[in-house]
């Protein structure tokens, strides 16, 4: 079981290191769908199988891309936001991979955007879903574990 504390520590570490943004736990489970959501996803395959999803708002993805790529927010294009989310998902997923039984490998990340979309990962159940805020924006990390 990947605990809430583990997910918070990993996410905090990634966000403070990469974009100097503190992260806090949040009780607000309101739907991200209303805020131009963007979702980064990586899968872990091997002794432990599952997936890690990182969801946030379009605004926060822009802020993160601006910090990580050292661009003005106005200069950040959609590809910059997507690349940033892929990298963040990769880093959080890679850290979570180090907590689960190995050997295992990390997949390439994918990033999904759209006005209104749903994601389903077959053969998994949600092991933990942690709602957080960073710079006043919603952020959610979901760890799905393969049923095997």
């Amino acid at each position: 079981m990947i605990s809430t504390e583990d997910i918070l520590t990993i996410t905090e570490n990634v966000f403070t290191t990469m974009i100097d943004s503190p992260v806090e736990l949040d009780n607000d489970e309101s739907d991200l769908a209303a805020h131009a959501p963007i979702t980064g996803c990586v899968q872990i395959a091997g002794e432990w199988s599952g997936a890690v999803l990182v969801q946030t708002t379009g605004d926060f993805a822009t802020q993160a891309a601006s910090k990580m790529l050292m661009l003005d927010q106005a200069e950040v294009c959609i590809e910059d936001r997507q690349d940033t989310m892929a990298e963040i998902a990769n880093m959080i997923g890679g850290n979570i991979k180090s907590l689960v039984p190995g050997p295992s490998t990390l997949s390439l990340p994918t990033v999904t955007t759209g006005e209104d979309f749903d994601i389903r990962i077959f053969g998994t159940t949600v092991e933990n879903s942690v709602a957080m805020t960073a710079n006043g924006q919603q952020l959610k990390v979901i760890v799905c574990r393969g049923c095997e």
């Binding site: 996803c41 899968q43 395959a45 091997g46 199988s49 599952g50 997936a51 590809e79 997507q82 690349d83 892929a86 990298e87 990769n90 490998t105 997949s107 390439l108 990340p109 994918t110 990033v111 999904t112 955007t113 759209g114 006005e115 209104d116 979309f117 749903d118 994601i119 389903r120 990962i121 077959f122 053969g123 998994t124 393969g146």
Partner: peptide, 22 residues
């Protein structure tokens, strides 16, 4: 080679992107 678990995204006009080094 190991296959991951199938992931399905639904939603009109959604975009699925892969990282730039790919």
């Amino acid at each position: 080679l190991t296959l991951g678990l199938p992931l399905v995204v639904t939603g009109s006009g959604h975009r699925v992107l892969m990282p730039p080094q790919v």
